[in-house]
């Protein structure tokens, strides 16, 4: 099993790596990838909402008020609460 995965951000063609116990936002910030907005980092505000287009992940406790079940089914996640389980392709959303 890999100890880190590659995360591709489709809009700006950037890529960063994320540890298997690291959340996407922390990894992006550490590598100066600024396309994901940084909010409360606690799963509560929704600023870091992204859509996973491809790949497997675990989503930690996130507010249903800003990430309702219907969105979760479409692959929307909060980057601050998402741990990759494979390489990922993500799309930065503008709505949140």
């Amino acid at each position: 099993m890999a100890d880190q995965y590659r995360v591709r951000v489709t809009e700006d063609e950037t890529e960063f790596v994320c540890g298997t116990h690291q959340d996407l936002l922390a990894a992006a910030v550490a590598q100066q990838v600024r396309s994901i907005k940084r909010g409360c980092r606690g799963g509560g505000c929704g600023m870091c909402k992204v859509q996973v287009l491809d790949g497997a992940y675990d989503l930690g406790k996130s507010s249903v008020a800003i990430l309702p079940p219907a969105e979760r089914e479409q692959g929307y996640v909060l980057a601050c609460k998402t741990i990759p389980k494979s390489d990922l392709k993500i799309r930065v959303t503008t709505e949140s």
Binding site: C40, G42, G43, G44
Partner: peptide
């Protein structure tokens, strides 16, 4: 700053 659930 933010608490662990995002309450400021």
């Amino acid at each position: 700053f933010f608490d662990p659930s995002g309450n400021r």
